[in-house]
């Protein structure tokens, strides 16, 4: 092959490249889709996890929704207050107060506290275990089964099964809420990060049945509801629940709880 052949090829390919490039540039200018500047600006501020926690299809969807006023500026639970402030500036509105939320697993029936009723053979997935009567190996049918479906859902490595119970790492949790939706027992809930006290049980069984199954279960004695001065703790069926908006963090309920399942955070 002669040197002219090589040079000729380079020239031809180079020319084709230039022509195509020119066409592409014209086309992109001519057929441009008008995008609101605000959308682009908002999109740049969003974290870009595409987790879907806001309820919109990914961060692009959220940016469009904020720019068109369909979503509040503080609608991104992952970004929290700093992102809300920046987006608020772009949109020219006050961000308002954002309360940092975290996920919390309402079960403390770990291997030491919860009794096993059987051995479990089957798919290692909480959703599958919940489909059969008796729900997993633990004697309690309300508690954490510990197969880690929530762990698989979490994009932020913030939830882990430790000693048979899922535990949320508060520093890593971005409050996207995926674990809340994943838990078939509905054990995970969103609470304000600065919540003082939490009830770490959700068993609706009666006191004796709870005691037989787990030493870290709410027996429904109602002592905490009687001792609370700010009317923040009430019974939901057979289990105590704290209204975090009213809780002052005095700690009397935790002190009074005979089974010590109201934990300070």
């Amino acid at each position: 092959m002669s040197i002219t052949g090589i040079i000729f090829t380079i020239i031809v390919v180079g020319m084709v490249g230039l022509v195509v490039g020119f066409l592409l540039v014209t086309a992109s200018e001519k057929f441009k889709v008008e995008v609101d500047e605000k959308v682009t600006a908002v999109r740049e501020q969003l974290p870009g996890n595409n987790c879907g926690a806001c309820g919109f299809p990914g961060c692009d969807g959220m940016a469009a929704a904020i720019a068109s006023g369909q979503a509040p500026v503080n609608g991104c639970p992952v970004g929290g207050a700093p992102v809300a402030e920046k987006i608020g500036k772009i949109m020219g509105v006050e961000a308002g107060e954002t309360v940092k939320m975290v996920a919390y697993v309402r079960c403390s029936g770990d291997c030491q506290h919860a009794k096993d009723k059987s051995e479990y053979y089957g798919i290692k997935d909480c959703r599958a275990a919940a489909a059969i009567p008796g729900k997993g190996a633990k004697a309690c049918t309300y508690g954490c089964m510990g197969f880690g479906t929530c762990v698989k859902e979490c994009q932020f490595d913030a939830i882990h099964v430790i000693n048979g119970v899922a535990v949320v790492d508060r520093t890593k949790c971005k409050a996207c809420g995926k674990c809340v939706a994943a838990c078939p027992n509905g054990l995970i809930e969103m609470i304000p990060d600065k919540a003082h006290y939490v009830v770490s049980c959700r068993s609706q069984d009666k006191g004796k049945a709870v005691k037989d199954a787990c030493s870290a279960g709410c027996i429904g004695c109602t002592a905490c509801t009687r001792v609370c001065e700010s009317d923040a703790i009430h019974m939901n069926g057979n289990v105590a629940e704290i209204d975090q908006t009213k809780c002052t963090g005095c700690g009397k309920c935790a002190e009074k709880c005979p089974v010590k399942i109201i934990h300070a955070r």
């Binding site: 053979y121 089957g122 798919i123 959703r127 599958a128 275990a129 919940a130 489909a131 059969i132």
Partner: peptide
């Protein structure tokens, strides 16, 4: 593999 166990669970679900 716990095949039947798995199918039972899926069918129930």
């Amino acid at each position: 593999r716990p095949l039947t166990q798995g199918f039972k669970q899926m069918r129930q679900a």
